[in-house]
């Protein structure tokens, strides 16, 4: 958490994370280009660079897309999620390098503007096998640019988390465009069964993990089917079911609510973190504050406000414990957000 904006709020974990990322990229490019000079002795340097950067970006995108569902399936992967935005921005730069090199190589020094050439150079849009693949890559690059440019918390706060989140869900559109770009380009003319199989494997990993995580997520989404007691509160279960400093997540009036146990008391607040809409119900109570498992944003138990000087706040719900059972008022309290 930070009360003011800096380009990157560095800490030890981020430095370790970025070092590992750069090491992986260096290893990939060294292996691809180094071995490429031997197994493809007649490939030009530009070809090796373009293909190295492109395949590296695509591989990294698969890793990025797998991190989310992996964390849903096993919280021990959460440290991978913490700095995922740096991974995304790094992937954009790799993709940008690929695209810039390709546009210069294939479209510069000609009789029309290179960007115009990408869009109008090939015209067989009515054919699947001859469909122009480069505009698909360019469209994906534009989406990735938008995401990288708005990745900073400044944009997250100013666009608001739901809008920011929707914008960044466009990564799936970019992924689909890139699969089209690769399938209709490289795979048609230059690939072998091995490289085609490699891409298929990546797609199976991405789709498979999302489906499995989605199926697991769908369980707590079922609305709570318990009668209201005489005060209008909903019985959400026994306090003993909830581990100390942890929460259970329930759906009340269509909204996911995290019900925390703190000693003999229960506290309820929206399950949605104001930062990136992370699942607060999977967080912990640390220093008297609910702490988001994604990036550590904190909210006070009693009013849902972040401790000063931070200004975020989440809706809270009135809670009572009677005969060992927790009752929650499904109507949220007024927001405690400070000006």
């Amino acid at each position: 958490m930070s009360e003011h904006y800096v380009a990157v709020g560095w800490n030890r974990q981020k430095k370790l994370y970025d070092s590992a990322t750069l090491a992986g990229i260096a290893l990939y490019l060294a292996a691809f280009i180094g071995v490429g000079t031997f197994v493809q002795p007649f490939a030009t340097a530009e070809t090796l660079i373009i293909r190295g950067l492109g395949t590296c970006a695509l591989a990294l995108l698969h890793v990025i897309l797998c991190i989310g569902p992996l964390c849903r399936l096993d919280r021990r992967f959460l440290p991978l999620l913490y700095n995922r935005r740096h991974l995304g921005v790094t992937m954009f730069f790799l993709a940008f390098g690929h695209g810039a090199f390709a546009i210069i190589q294939f479209h510069a020094l000609g009789d029309v503007n290179p960007l115009v050439s990408v869009l109008v150079g090939e015209t067989r849009f009515g054919s699947i096998t001859n469909f122009p693949f480069q505009p698909l890559g360019l469209a994906a690059l534009v989406i990735l640019l938008l995401m990288a440019a708005t990745s900073h918390d400044f944009w997250l706060a100013n666009l608001t988390a739901p809008v920011w989140k929707r914008l960044h869900m466009a990564v799936y559109v970019a992924y689909a465009l890139l699969i089209g770009h690769v399938s209709l380009g490289f795979l048609q003319g230059e690939a072998t069964t091995v490289t085609t199989g490699l891409l298929a494997l990546g797609m199976v990993a991405v789709f498979g993990l999302h489906i499995i995580a989605g199926l697991r997520e769908s369980v707590p989404d079922r609305p709570l089917d318990r009668p209201l007691n005489d005060t209008g509160f909903v019985d959400v279960g026994a306090l003993a079911e909830i581990r100390e400093s942890c929460a259970k997540t329930v759906t009340l009036a269509g909204e996911r609510v995290a019900v925390f146990r703190h000693g003999d008391q229960a506290f309820a607040m929206s399950n949605v973190c104001q930062h990136q809409n992370g699942p607060l119900g999977e967080g912990r109570i640390i220093d008297g504050c609910v702490t988001c498992p994604w990036h550590g944003y904190q909210y006070r138990l009693e009013d849902g406000a972040s401790p000063p000087p931070f200004t975020e706040a989440v809706p809270t719900f009135e809670t009572t414990v009677r005969d060992g059972r927790v009752f929650v008022n499904p109507k949220p309290r007024p927001s405690a957000r400070r000006a």
Partner: peptide
Amino acid sequence: LLSLAAVVALIAISGQRKLG
């Protein structure tokens, strides 16, 4: 992941049509 980076790179470069 680091092992995969090297292996995927080797497969990606080796599994391409040989250039004349």
